[in-house]
C-alpha cells in the first residue's frame, strides 16, 4: 500500500502519457491537457511545503537564537510583508510592484553581475592547467569575448574579414558550439528517455525516499 500503490500509479500514468502521444484522437489530447493541468494544481499545493519549510527553518533559528538569527527575521518579515501586500492589493498593487522594481530586481541582477568576477577567477584557475584542452577552451573564450566588444574590432579591424575576431567569434558560436551542443542534447535526450523508462518500470525508485526503496 505504501510502496506498491505509488509504483502502480507511476506505471499506469507514465505508460498512458507515453503512448497517448501516438494516438491522434481528441480524447487523447484532451486527457493529456487535463492531466497536465492536474500536475500544475498539485505543484501549486506543493509550493506550500516549500514555503512551510522556509518559515520553519528561519522560525527555529529565531526561536533558539542560533547564529545569524537576526537575518532570519529579515527573511520572515520580508516574506510575510510581500505576501500580505500581494494578497490584499493584488499583483498590480503599486507598493507590490515598487518592492519588486526597487528591491528584488536590482539585487538579483547585481548578484548575476557578481558572477562575472567569480567566473573570471574560476577561469584563471582552470586555465592554469596548461593542457591542450584547457588552451582550446581559453582561446575560444577569449576570441568570443573580444569578438563582442569594440576593442576586438580595433585589434583585428585591419585584417581580412574572415580573420577578424567578430567573424571568428561567429564561426565558433555557430559551428563548434552548435556541434558540441547538439551532441550533448542527443545524449541528454537519450538519457532522459532511459531514466523515465526506468522510473515508469519501477527500476529507479529513489523518488520514494527512505524506506520506499527497500
Amino acid at each position: 500500500m505504501k510502496r506498491e500503490l505509488p509504483l502502480m500509479i507511476v506505471l499506469i500514468f507514465g505508460t498512458f502519457m507515453a503512448f497517448q502521444y501516438f494516438v491522434p484522437h481528441r480524447i487523447s489530447s484532451d486527457l493529456y491537457q487535463e492531466f497536465n493541468n492536474w500536475t500544475i494544481i498539485i505543484g501549486i499545493f506543493a509550493m506550500v511545503v516549500g514555503i512551510g519549510s522556509l518559515i520553519s527553518l528561519h522560525y527555529n533559528r529565531i526561536k533558539f537564537k542560533k547564529p545569524g538569527w537576526g537575518y532570519s527575521t529579515v527573511t520572515i518579515v520580508c516574506l510575510i510583508g510581500m505576501m500580505s501586500i500581494g494578497l490584499i492589493g493584488g499583483t498590480e498593487n503599486d507598493l507590490f510592484l515598487k518592492l519588486y522594481r526597487h528591491g528584488l530586481a536590482p539585487v538579483t541582477s547585481t548578484m548575476f553581475s557578481l558572477l562575472a568576477f567569480f567566473i573570471a577567477s574560476a577561469a584563471y584557475r582552470a586555465f592554469r592547467a596548461r593542457t591542450i584542452l584547457a588552451t582550446l577552451l581559453l582561446l575560444a573564450a577569449v576570441v568570443v569575448m573580444l569578438g563582442r566588444v569594440p576593442i576586438g574590432e580595433i585589434l583585428t579591424g585591419w585584417l581580412p574579414r574572415p580573420l577578424q575576431f567578430s567573424e571568428i567569434s561567429n564561426f565558433l558560436l555557430y559551428v563548434p558550439n552548435t556541434a558540441a551542443k547538439r551532441a550533448i542534447f542527443i545524449g541528454v535526450g537519450l538519457g532522459v528517455a532511459a531514466m523515465s523508462l526506468k522510473i515508469i518500470l519501477g527500476i529507479e525508485r529513489t523518488w520514494l525516499g527512505g524506506e520506499g526503496r527497500k
Partner: peptide, 23 residues
C-alpha cells in the same frame, strides 16, 4: 573532445559577456 572544449569555451565567453553587460 576538442570540438566540445572549443564549444564550451565559446559558450563560456558568451556567458561572461552577458554577466559583464549586467555589471
Amino acid at each position: 573532445i576538442y570540438v566540445i572544449m572549443i564549444g564550451f569555451g565559446a559558450g563560456f565567453g558568451l556567458t561572461v559577456m552577458g554577466r559583464v553587460a549586467l555589471l
